[in-house]
Design a binder for these strands. Structure first.
Lengths: 213, 213
DNA sequence: TTATTGTTTGACCAACTGGTCAAGATCACG
DNA sequence: CGTGATCTTGACCAGTTGGTCAAACAATAA
């Protein structure tokens, strides 16, 4: 019998038994490991199954297909991933808001590097499974927040900057520490990148954003 | 007969016939397409062969294995990739040197996005085929240039910044426009990212690096 | 207990993948 | 031209991969 019968009405992911709860969680966690390190195509169900401590047919009892696992991961993540940007508040202090956004993104890179790499892999490969979201939800959100930033600049509360590229820069700089962690650590040796990164980014955005010259 | 007999003595890649010249080039170009978009494991010899206009056995007449093609690409690229950083000159004007480095990296993202993605894929997947280089050549080069930058700062010719993270920031910001091109373009719509990016990065590093406050 | 539902697995399959090989086609040069 | 070297390919192979299925096993409610 179908274990997770795509509940047509309610969108609650009601998990029926505690066995399902446990196994679905284990699968998604293992899949995050594997997909984020290998990308969709190079990831194998065998690898996910092994890491989850289940047999491959057992995986496919809980999820229809490899695609379905990947899709559930991406869906669940897109929301979390954009939350910090959603929190950018037009009524707050411009510099504090942007510094806070940057710091939250850096925190996510430190605490959720697998998620960061999952997205990076997806985008690198042309984002075939999220192009809709990119041109839809994401673009809308970025445009909205860019307008807020432009407002701040025009009010003289922020140094003049291209708002879109300011946002890109925050993505690039913070996610770099997760996506290119291997490289960063190889260059830094034993040093922990993150405290240094936070100091550096504070300086960088402090100097970039302070109004006046 | 072996087409490219690993010339033991001379390190010149002397290609004997023009057929070899043409086909090896076609293979490497096709392989760059495929590897940069899919990553090593997900790339297939069939895909490379098709794009190169050759049969799969014919590919393997010119290269011993899939690994060999990938290795030749990475080898050839690592040099080119680090050239802009090598060019950073201790005797030049600090700001001009760093701005020049940043612009050259941005140019490379615009003109060699496939190469950028090839590296990104490799690093994202843990860099199994270049860990030696990362902790060796790369770390040495970065440490050397970081020392130069520190010297400039201590001489008061540059605003105080962590040199390593300054270099990371240049990598992250410039390569972002190649590696995450799909996302950037989805958000910007029809606009061409690169001219805007150059202006933005000029502003950003101008404000970050200018000595004094 | 028993009937029902939920869970797990070994055996299996077709498609794909990297790679081999021997035979044939083509080229360069005396 | 002829001959040896270079180039190309169809057929093939073993290992991997996503996915199926029927049968066995476990949990649970009546």
């Amino acid at each position: 019998m179908d274990p997770l019968p795509e509940d047509g009405e309610s969108s609650r992911p009601r998990r029926r038994t505690r066995i399902q709860q446990r196994n679905v969680e284990a699968i998604l966690d293992a899949a995050l490991d594997v997909f984020s390190q290998a990308g969709f195509r190079a990831a194998t169900l065998d690898a996910i199954a092994e890491r989850a401590g289940l047999s491959k047919p057992n995986l496919l009892y809980y999820f229809d297909s490899k695609e379905a696992i990947h899709a559930e991961l991406l869906d669940g993540l897109l929301d979390i991933w954009l939350d910090p940007l959603r929190a950018l508040d037009a009524d707050g202090d411009p510099q504090a808001q942007l510094m806070g956004y940057m710091r939250r993104k850096l925190d996510m890179s430190r605490e959720m590097p697998r998620e960061s790499r999952l997205f990076a892999n997806e985008i690198l490969q042309g984002g075939p499974r999220i192009t809709d979201t990119l041109g839809g939800t994401l673009k809308a959100l970025v445009d909205e927040k860019a307008a807020i930033i432009r407002g701040w600049t025009e009010a003289g509360r922020l140094a003049p900057v291209d708002p879109h590229h300011l946002i890109f820069s925050i993505w690039a700089l913070t996610q770099h520490y997760a996506d290119f962690e291997v490289q960063v650590r190889a260059v830094l040796g034993a040093r922990d990148p993150f405290p240094e990164a936070e100091t550096f980014l504070d300086t960088l955005y402090g100097r970039l954003l302070a109004p006046q010259g």
